[in-house]
Design a protein around this nucleic acid. Structure first.
Lengths: 338, 338
DNA sequence: TCCCGGACTGGGACCGGTCACAGCCTCCGG
DNA sequence: CCGGAGGCTGTGACCGGTCCCAGTCCGGGA
């Protein structure tokens, strides 16, 4: 008789039970906290787990408990932003770490194309994930709407515009942050302050502009506002338009560090020195702000907190605990550019 | 009698079967390709799926088939690289898209701390994923070793150093690329060419230097080599050391765009103009190369192909098809800096 | 007319866990 | 000596699919 090669199967909970001389139930109890288990049994099971090299089967557990043990990190921005904008990476990393602490995992979903967007809700319902971390939604995003209709626990990054108010979100105080930065610029004697705002259909685009306008008060001049899409190129282009229209501006507040970098690029080409001739301020305190030439004065978003709070909020919502949107403060970081 | 709120359960395959008037087996067959199913039955099932809003339960399928339907994107670099280096984002996005085409998902794993690294192999065995895309391994990485020991299909990005040769990988022709760039610099009349190499325990660090040295031939001067860790700061620091040691260099070849950017920063501070006084070349053609001031001459890595090939290679390995490591070509992108 | 094979279908067993319940033992109070 | 309460344990049912085998139906060749 020939010896079968014995393709050693992965040990299951039954193997562990047999090895420990107890039942499946007891093993399960030990694995999940271990209440109502005698010290002897617990020791035997732990020993058996060690000996057999047992690892719980995730799919089986998922099936039995009805929970996936993972969350989706859903990005809906057009592609170029993902690999240009360092803030996404910050959020992603933070979320992954927050989850790994909890023995859960992050599933990355990119819904850039309309086709991809269309089946995200469907896909998410398939039980892949317990909830969704929605990154950067534009106004009245149908995707968010369909997630909510499907009853999928969702937490947005930034207050989603144009939705029923119950949408959960973690955001920063956009308007207040913009007021702080504007006040900083005014305190340094700048009067002709321009703003390169973000898209009006994003919270950062809309409310940072609101804060800027409020703080400027009577000095606010709509001529000095241009809009970009947060990218460096759009900042450079906006700066060109501003310079053409109002060559006398003495400060620029951009709604993202990338746009600020673009503005500096344009200004340099135009022969203006930063900050001597014109001050430039950004927003985000993304990685590039500190290494930029000159280093950017900016509003620091609390990235670690943002992702951590998004995760806790979402998990609370999933577990049915009482939850409400979170607003975090930002801090002014003064560097050389303004 | 009170009306129970009817918490409508998600429809299962049995509900569909009942609605279509067929058996579970037939429904399952329709879902999976639909061979050996009569046109009538197929139509009835498809209609029933539509009506009931059925979505396959991923965990159940996973349990029955023994496949997770997802791959891990495992990053082992120290944290700061993730959010500084845009190349990671490129790979990540490419991999996510390649998988979404195949109805699979990407699970993001970050094993930065030793503790995290320690249980990755254990974790991966839990059945979360079918295989691992390993990003950026340093020499003789014990993590890779334990993944291989555990029999987990793994594909590395870049040829892992210090391992048995059977490790699957997708990489670019590092040495050849470096020769191409070096030849380009020499063709433009540069003779005192310095190199800012990557860490010697990474393939990009080691083999790009090899290519540089080979191409330089007798003109190679070990004095003109400095090592960075691919980050912008390290490039700036390396450039400082080079300038101090050999003020007469007329070109610098950095093993990453970020380090090239750092070098330009240092050169600018030192009052040297790029490219007039000194040429600077990078590597990667990451997003920043084109928008950099001046735009960077660099070697373009075929990012989309890299991630796509990593995924196909890994899936082939998982399915037990014959596979071997892949090496892709790079292309020289000439911009203003060199 | 019978038999056979191919197309199609139904249903039991199974994947590896969790959960709820029943049962056991032991100890204590009445 | 009995009843009962706790602490602990074992077991059957179940989660929602897939797989595979047995069976039905039907048409065509002998």
């Amino acid at each position: 008789m020939e010896q079968t090669p014995t393709v050693r199967r992965k040990p299951t909970i039954r193997d562990v039970a047999a090895a420990a001389g107890v039942s499946r139930g007891t093993v399960s109890r030990v694995i999940n906290g271990g209440h109502w288990v005698s010290p002897d049994a617990r020791a035997a099971v732990e020993d058996a787990i060690e000996r057999t090299g047992y690892t719980a089967n995730h799919a089986a557990r998922s099936l039995a408990t009805g929970r996936a043990g993972s969350l989706a990190f859903l990005m809906t921005e057009p592609q170029h932003l993902l690999f240009d904008d360092p803030t996404f990476a910050l959020l992603l990393r933070g979320a992954a770490e927050a989850l790994s602490k909890r023995q859960m995992t992050l599933v990355l979903l990119i819904a850039g194309t309309p086709a991809e967007r269309a089946n995200v809700a469907h896909y998410v319902s398939a039980g892949h994930v317990d909830g969704v971390l929605l990154i950067s939604s534009h106004e009245a995003d149908p995707l968010l709407e369909s997630l909510m209709d499907a009853g999928i626990p969702t937490v947005a990054c930034g207050v989603p515009l144009g939705h029923r108010s119950e949408v959960l979100s973690v955001s920063v105080d956009e308007a207040g942050s913009a007021r702080t930065m504007t006040a900083h610029l005014r305190a340094h004697g700048h009067r002709r302050i321009a703003m390169i705002a973000g898209p009006d259909d994003t919270p950062g685009g809309r409310f940072r502009l609101v804060g800027f306008r409020d703080e400027m008060g009577d000095d606010f001049d709509p001529e000095l506002v241009e809009v970009g899409d947060y990218s460096q190129d759009s900042g450079a282009a906006a700066m060109e338009r501003l310079l053409e229209r109002a060559p006398d501006i003495d400060a620029v507040f951009a709604a993202s560090d990338l746009m600020a970098a673009g503005a500096v690029q344009t200004l340099r080409r135009a022969g203006r020195r930063v900050p001597d001739d014109i001050a430039v301020a950004g927003f985000d305190d993304s990685g590039l702000a500190a290494t930029h030439e000159p280093p950017l004065t900016t509003m620091r978003q609390p990235w670690e907190q943002l992702s951590e709070r998004m995760v806790t909020l979402l998990l609370d919502a999933i577990d049915g605990r009482a939850v409400e949107p979170v607003v975090l403060p930002t801090t002014l970081v003064v560097r050389a550019s303004a």
